[in-house]
Nucleic acid binder design. Structure first.
Lengths: 113, 113
DNA sequence: TTGACATATGCCTATATCGGCATATAATCC
DNA sequence: GGATTATATGCCGATATAGGCATATGTCAA
């Protein structure tokens, strides 16, 4: 077995930087493929393929408009990864707090000398 | 070129379900490899290799304690993906709001019949 | 030293990937 | 019809991967 399929898993779908860029480009709103291509300066077939992956995991939907194909964000699929990461928010805050404490401790010691 | 290296990129490191499981197992606190192995019922070499990847992207640190090796979470590295996803929070809330509106609209129409 | 335990590493196979390029499909306009 | 534009798909090569297994490394105990 190789790495999990991007097609199956949202986590794998957003592991690709270009795909994240595409999603970012779609935050502003619905766009035809060509707009994404010129936004990101990527070859058109590459963009189409990434859009296909994003569409298969449900992060994006398309509708035909004349000979254009407009893609729009379907952001709900990003909730599960966001929630998985949210579990760690406490953990890193705790660490930053401890770091703060440590820095203040250093400062206190430095100040008392 | 194939997919980006898990070694370089936190997004790729957490794209693997087993690695997410390992991180989840470490939320409770520092653990030796063996504890993770029995928590997740995975072969030990596999766990060691995943820990190596996690360690290389800085999501995990280890210290030696006798013949054990204790791994602990280093959660700060999870902030960038969390923040990237946070941008979309508004987007999916907006969508859920619209969905709410839509459902209420349906209900209003249904109620008036 | 010898042996038992804990962990890391090496080699292997199968596979899914990204990107490049050429080309197919589809819609529009002349 | 034919030409042009917009997008999707097919095939290819290179590569990194996850997992399996055997084994190396390291640490302690008797």
């Amino acid at each position: 077995m190789a790495r999990s399929a991007t097609t199956t898993d949202v986590f794998n779908a957003i592991a690709e930087a270009h795909r994240r860029d595409i999603l970012d480009a779609l935050i502003a709103g619905e766009k035809p493929v060509g707009a994404i291509v010129s936004d990101l300066s990527l070859p058109q077939p590459q963009v189409s393929k990434h859009l296909r992956v994003l569409s298969e995991v449900g992060l994006v939907r398309s509708r035909a408009e004349g000979r254009f194909r407009l893609y729009r964000l379907e952001p709900v699929g990003l909730r599960p990864p966001h929630e998985w990461l949210a579990k760690y928010e406490r953990a890193w805050n705790a660490r930053l707090d401890r770091m703060d404490d440590y820095l203040q401790e250093l400062q206190r010691q430095g100040g008392s000398q």
